[in-house]
Design a protein around this nucleic acid. Structure first.
Ligand SMILES: [Mn+2]
Ligand SMILES: [Mn+2]
Ligand SMILES: [Zn+2]
Ligand SMILES: [Zn+2]
Lengths: 155, 155
DNA sequence: ATGGGAATGGGAATCATTTTCATTAAGGGT
DNA sequence: ACCCTTAATGAAAATGATTCCCATTCCCAT
């Protein structure tokens, strides 16, 4: 709870500077309860540091993705969404995406068995295609509890 | 090899008209060996029917995705890519995406065990979140055999 | 303190996709 | 084969997220 946030150390090693905008953006992301768009990050950060521009948000979020600190997602709503990937409170998980309302649900259940299979699959794919796998993404698409009934009414 | 293509029947049932553009676009997709962007489809179709516009490609590909005939993907290169999902020659598969050059590799290996696990996972998720799962997407990100060496040289 | 490269921010530019609207053409009924 | 209704189309303009440009500011090792 005290001392500098856990990400402060990660910048020096890469030769990057830990600036106000970068720190502010990471703060916003670390407190976010959902998957934020660049603009949403911009608005949130803007309340505390009105000087920070949208361009910087894009640049920063891109840098962070390159460092592996955030994940960039496309859930099909026309804008990229970002989520902290490392650190306390962030666990590897997969997503359920509602085609009706766009809601995204994180799930970590059943990951145990998934993780085991993914390890095997990654190993086999790496060898067969001589491909170095860095990460993966799993998403299920469908209808959430709210949208399911609406769909049925259409018939 | 003869007779109307397999997709002709799929339109009537939905109340959609089978038009020249739609047929042409499906022909292009059915012959494609890679994941085409809207513009690539447009160029291919344009050689045979120069009158067909890019707008129609977008509309059609959207319609086909809604009908479940094509899958829409985002591989991170800034444009959506489309692939026939049903019919002879199209098997359900997952993707390896190279972060270096953007190459996308289809793989169907190891799907057997994956398929089994996915069935279980889908069932469990459906129940727990009261979510109707229609489809899923799995992508592995990393470096292909060509890009792997380049990355190592940078250090 | 100083110099130099890194980082920033505002505005313009890009570019994939969508919207608009006047025109065309499926295809069911005759 | 011919009409009619209406879905479908295409050209051009609009949109909107992301990127580019560049003058200015900031960080930090010397
Ligand atoms: Mn998530
Ligand atoms: Mn594929
Ligand atoms: Zn929903
Ligand atoms: Zn590659």
């Amino acid at each position: 709870m005290h001392g500098p946030p856990w990400w402060h150390g990660r910048f020096r090693g890469c030769g990057y500077r830990l600036t106000i905008p970068r720190d502010a953006i990471l703060n916003v992301l670390s407190k976010a309860s959902k998957h934020l768009s660049a603009e949403e990050i911009y608005f949130a950060v803007h309340k505390i540091y009105p000087a920070i521009g949208l361009t910087t948000v894009y640049r920063t979020v891109d840098l962070l993705a390159g460092m592996g600190l955030v994940h960039k997602f496309d859930f099909g709503d026309g804008r990229s969404r970002y989520e902290l990937s490392k650190g306390p409170g962030s666990i590897h998980h997969h997503h359920l995406v509602c085609r009706g309302c766009g809601r995204v649900i994180d799930y970590t259940d059943f990951i145990d068995e998934e993780a085991e299979l993914f390890k095997q699959t990654e190993a086999a794919l790496s060898k067969k295609y001589n491909f170095k796998i860095k990460s993966h993404r799993v998403q299920f698409y469908g209808l959430c509890e709210k949208c399911k009934p609406k769909e049925e009414n259409k018939e």
